[in-house]
Every structure is written in C-alpha cells, then in structure tokens.
C-alpha cells in the first residue's frame, strides 16, 4: 500500500466508511466493525504521527516551493490577490488542482504554464509540503 500524503486532519479518512468515528466508539469500534489488523496498524500509526505530514519527499516539495512563494508567499499565505493561500490545504486538493491545470480542465494564465512543467512526483511533493503547514484562523467577530 502506498500511503497518500496526509495533512494533520486526514487520519479520520481511514474510517470514513462507518457512521461512528473511532473517537466516539472507543475500543469497541474496532471489535464491532471487524477492522482488519493491517488497517488497525496503519490507523494507530496515523494517530501517533498526527501532528506531522507524511510524504516521501516533503523536503523536495520545500525546495520546489521557492517558485510558488513568489505569489503564494513563503508561509503559504498569498500576497497576490489573484492567488490563493496554500498553507494547510489538503494534499488531495492541491494535487487535483495541479493535475486539472495540467490537463486543461482548469485554466489560469500563470498556473496553466507552471503546471505543464511539473512531474507527477513533484506535484506529490509540493502537495505534501503545503498541506503540512499549520494554520489558525480568526473568525470575524460580528
């Protein structure tokens, strides 16, 4: 199994096919749902590592991100009104966006050019890097 790149919040996706989350059901969750042992191992490992992102080459993502930072910011917070924040986005979404630009399903004057030059592994690395950023938000007080 190849583990997908994980952001800090994505460990719950392992159990998405059941109604109750493991946190709600406690230990009985695993007994009631007859979860295979190998999935349990992965699940507990995910929990242990929940504060870090998991990627084969996040360090390469960091190197590649120098170019992205011109618009999206070194901290993944955009300085450019045309560009979104990337900090903390799910790896899945970043990957999908880049692939969509590559395939032409999405078009942007800059991103369509950038995406053309990226290999699949580079897309994964970049997605891992930005999804690992931790972010807090302040909701407006109205």
């Amino acid at each position: 199994m190849i583990m997908p790149v994980r952001s800090t919040r994505s460990h719950t996706s392992v159990a998405n096919h059941v109604k109750k989350t493991p946190a709600q059901a406690g230990v009985f969750y695993f007994l009631e749902n007859k979860v295979p042992v190998n999935k349990l191992i992965i699940f507990f490992l995910s929990l242990c590592l929940s504060s870090v992102a998991i990627a084969a080459d996040m360090a390469n993502g960091k190197v590649l991100s120098a170019q992205c930072s011109a618009c999206h910011g070194k901290d993944g917070l955009s300085r450019d009104p045309e560009a979104p924040n990337l900090a903390g986005l799910s790896a899945l979404y970043i990957e999908k966006s880049l692939v969509d630009y590559q395939k032409g399903a999405r078009h942007d004057r800059r991103m369509s050019l950038i995406a053309q030059g990226l290999k699949k592994s580079q897309i994964k690395d970049l997605s891992a890097w930005y999804s690992a950023f931790e972010l807090t938000a302040k909701v407006p007080d109205i």
């Binding site: 583990m3 800090t8 490992l45 995910s46 590592l49 504060s51 870090v52 992102a53 998991i54 990627a55 084969a56 996040m58 360090a59 690992a132 950023f133 931790e134």
Partner: peptide
Amino acid sequence: AMAFAAGVVA
C-alpha cells in the same frame, strides 16, 4: 515512509 516523514515538522 511514515517514520521518515516523522522527522519533518511543519
């Protein structure tokens, strides 16, 4: 893979 990544903290 996970152990490798665990060394990299956001």
